[in-house]
Design a protein around this nucleic acid. Structure first.
Length: 489
DNA sequence: CGGTGGGACGATAGCGTCCCACCGGTGCTCTATT
């Protein structure tokens, strides 16, 4: 396939003249029939990577996606672009039979891993000559299972049953460990895959963390931050209850338009809040980790964490939602003693009592009484996992998440450059830059201020953006921010 | 670990206090009842 043809399709179907970094290399690898793992930063135009080849390949592209809302987004976009040959397979209400009989006429087929565990769906896909299998948000393969969404573990078998189609794995963040894990779990070796990696570094996101003595102090600090930092922001919490309470408290104690967002809310309300945030009717969202994937707002100025996230992978994903427009933004991690306990709780993945395995196997257990434990064992029994295999995979998972949490704690209490720590964690060599982090970057002091928020507390004129943040966090003296070395250079 | 909701109890009529148990995030699909 020559480049001229590729550029022609780019112009004709997408209206662009040029590719962004990493796009052409990925597309050429796919068109040459090579499996490809593409790790490209947020907002790097990842959907183009499977959409463009679709117009140069004979058969349909199957896209595996973790969220219905993400699929719906893609479907809507394709429709707006004039593409009618789109099928979204999802549960409930749809005429499955009819959809499955039309697979060959589709150009794009979207489905969740759960649906792809359905034998009827797999048989229909086997009769379809797929040109490409795309796994979107591929880090989910590593992040989820065996305790949550175990169907992610079936993608290896699916790929085999579909006669090993050329596969594109897409994500914004993956450490070398996660990359290895993703490939293992889809049944590919490093030799069978072209890996295209661009840096996870987001130079315009200033990195800061602050340990506070109590949760009261943390709350006060949060209020100062959100009323002074300009523009739209997200505050992440590790519990639904606190996200809801703090949204209410911030609404009462500031002039900000604030809303909570978590998975316990009705989906219509979640959708509405997301829309209002996009439309700038809301300035601040107090959310759990449910808020994130598919948030396509490019002028988020700050992301604050009120609790310790469970891994640096998650943290980098979450702060990566700031500053997609390239403007100066900030990521601030607040933590108080005891916070790591909650994180530890959330990362405990215990195998349900082993005695249940046989009971479920022999049909002696009550599905309604056992709920999730039943579902999990039922799933694994149906897919021929033995109890000892399960013990092993839960054990491995547990030590993996414990290690990840430990790395996150290390980040929180760093006394050296935070950016270098993140880059090293993601297997990258270090960079020199300005506006770096609260620890060791002298250059960022000379940068211009972020524009102050108009509607609330206005910082003193000519006060520099770093000074503001430092003052806000009350850390001038016994500073966790280590600004003191900045003056020496 | 830390917050919270419920129940027991005590002292005495409308509650206060204490203790204990429990929970804490992420989403898909299918099925049987309303």
């Amino acid at each position: 396939m020559n480049d001229a043809k590729i550029y022609e399709v780019l112009k004709q179907h997408f209206g662009y003249e040029h590719f962004r970094d990493g796009q052409l290399a990925t597309i050429k690898a796919l068109l040459a029939g090579k499996n490809t793992l593409a790790i490209l930063p947020t907002g790097g135009g990842k959907s183009l990577l499977y959409q463009l080849p679709a117009y140069l390949l004979p058969g349909p592209v199957l896209v595996v996606s973790p969220l219905i809302s993400l699929m719906q987004d893609q479907v809507d976009r394709l429709h707006r672009n004039g593409e009618k040959r789109v099928l979204m397979l999802s549960g409930g209400g749809q005429d499955r039979r009819q959809q499955l009989s039309q697979l060959s006429q589709a150009k794009f087929i979207f489905a969740s891993p759960e649906l792809l565990a359905n034998p009827e769906v797999v048989r229909a896909l086997q009769r379809t000559k797929l040109s490409l299998l795309t796994i979107d948000e591929a880090h989910c393969i590593s992040q989820w299972g065996p305790d949550f969404r175990p169907e992610y573990l079936l993608l290896k078998q699916l790929r085999h049953e579909l006669d090993d189609p050329v596969t594109l794995l897409l994500t914004a963040t993956a450490t070398p460990r996660v990359r290895h894990d993703i490939l293992t779990k889809v049944g590919l070796s490093a030799e069978q895959v072209v890996t295209i990696v661009r840096s996870v570094n987001r130079p315009n996101i200033f990195l800061a963390a602050s340990e506070l003595a109590s949760s009261d102090e943390k709350q006060t600090t949060l209020l100062k931050l959100v009323t002074t930092l300009p523009g739209a922001g997200i505050v992440y919490f590790a519990s639904r209850r606190l996200a809801t309470q703090m949204a209410e408290w911030l609404r009462e104690n500031s002039t900000l338009a604030v809303a909570a967002y978590h998975a316990g809310m009705p989906s219509a309300e979640r959708f509405r809040i997301q829309q209002q945030f996009m439309d700038n009717q809301l300035q601040l969202i107090c959310a759990t980790s449910a808020f994130g994937m598919g948030i396509d707002k490019d002028d988020i100025r700050f992301v604050i964490h009120y609790h310790l996230p469970t891994s640096l992978e998650n943290y980098v994903q979450e702060i990566g939602r700031a500053g997609r427009d390239g403007q100066q933004s900030a990521a601030v991690l607040l933590y108080a003693p005891g916070d790591e306990q909650l994180a530890r709780q959330l990362t405990t993945t215990e195998l349900p009592p082993a005695g249940l395995y046989q009971k479920v196997q022999q049909g002696q257990a009550d599905r309604r009484v056992l709920g999730p434990d039943y579902e999990l064992f039922d799933f694994y029994i149906r897919h021929h996992y033995s109890i000892s295999q399960l013990r092993e995979s839960f054990g491995k998972r547990q030590s993996q998440v414990a290690w990840q949490l430990h790395q996150m704690q290390k980040y929180a209490s760093l006394t050296s450059c935070r950016r270098q720590f993140i880059l090293a964690y993601f297997g990258e060599s270090t960079v020199e830059q300005t506006d770096c982090c609260d620890i060791d970057e002298p250059g960022w002091l000379s940068k211009p201020l972020l524009p102050p928020r108009k509607t609330t507390v206005v910082p003193k004129k000519n006060e520099r953006w770093d000074t503001q943040l430092q003052r806000l966090l009350n850390l001038d003296k016994e500073s966790n921010f280590h600004f003191s070395n900045l003056d020496k250079q």
